[in-house]
Structure formats: structure tokens, C-alpha cells
């Protein structure tokens, strides 16, 4: 089965990004496909590459990046939600005249259309959030 995943709460404050990660791993283990994960609301904060949690804690962004690279998952960060919250890739930083960008490897910034497209193209859409 093709499963699309939405993460709509921020990392560490909320368990959504962790549970989504465990869910995606379990789904892949069972032989399902997870072509895309869409990060929305505060979920976009998962994608910052500047997160430095204590060493004895999980690193949520790195977990996602590694999983995405291993299984070719498209990690999409909503551009409108990201810009509100100070998450920019190199192109957007340039376009907005900002002196830094902070999107981690394995994530890409794109529009809400990618969320709708995921809903159309997958068999199930599973949301992790409040």
C-alpha cells in the first residue's frame, strides 16, 4: 500500500515527529511504500539543520534525513509555514535577502500542492499531530 504521511507538530515539544518516524519505519518494514512525508504547521521545524540536542538524546532531524536517504522518501516542508517560522533553503534565503539558510539535507521546501498531490496519489494519508 502507498502511504502518505503528514507531520504537523514541532519536534521535542510534541511526540508527533517521533511517532511518525516510528510509523514510517514500521510501514516500510512491512513492505508498504512511503513516497513522501509532508511537514506542516510547527512540523516544519523538524527540518532545521541547526538543531543540537544533548548527545544522549535522539536527533530527530538526522533520523529523518537518514531514513529518507535509505528509502528515497521525499521529505517536503511547506514553504508558507516554513517562511513564517524562519526556515529557509539557500534559494529562498537569497530571494528574501537573508544572510543564512537552515534546511537540512534530505528535506526540500515546496508548496502545499505537494500535500494535496500526496493525498491524490497515495492509498492512505496518515496525519501525526494534535
Amino acid at each position: 500500500m502507498k502511504i502518505g504521511v503528514v507531520v504537523s507538530e514541532g519536534p521535542y515539544t510534541h511526540q508527533a515527529a517521533d511517532t511518525a518516524y516510528q510509523f514510517v519505519k514500521a510501514a516500510l518494514d512491512k513492505g508498504h511504500e512511503v513516497p513522501r512525508v509532508f511537514f506542516y504547521h510547527d512540523g516544519v521545524n523538524v527540518s532545521t539543520r541547526l538543531s543540537v540536542p544533548p548527545q544522549d538524546e535522539r536527533h530527530i532531524q538526522k533520523q529523518w534525513t537518514a531514513l529518507a536517504q535509505e528509502h528515497e522518501i521525499d521529505l517536503v516542508v511547506c514553504i508558507a509555514a516554513a517562511q513564517r517560522r524562519g526556515l529557509l533553503d539557500e534559494n529562498e534565503a537569497k530571494r528574501q535577502g537573508k544572510d543564512a539558510h537552515n534546511i537540512a539535507e534530505g528535506f526540500r521546501i515546496s508548496g502545499l500542492g505537494q500535500l494535496i498531490e500526496m493525498g491524490i496519489q497515495t492509498d492512505r494519508l496518515v496525519t501525526f499531530g494534535d
Partner: peptide, 17 residues
């Protein structure tokens, strides 16, 4: 919270599909 506003944004973008 921002949920209501960001929901409406999805609806408006999604309408194009």
C-alpha cells in the same frame, strides 16, 4: 493557534487540484 488559518491555506491551494 494557527491551525485554522493554515487549514484555510491548504483549502485555497487545494482548490486548484
Amino acid at each position: 493557534t494557527i491551525y485554522a488559518l493554515e487549514s484555510l491555506e491548504v483549502v485555497l491551494i487545494g482548490a486548484a487540484f
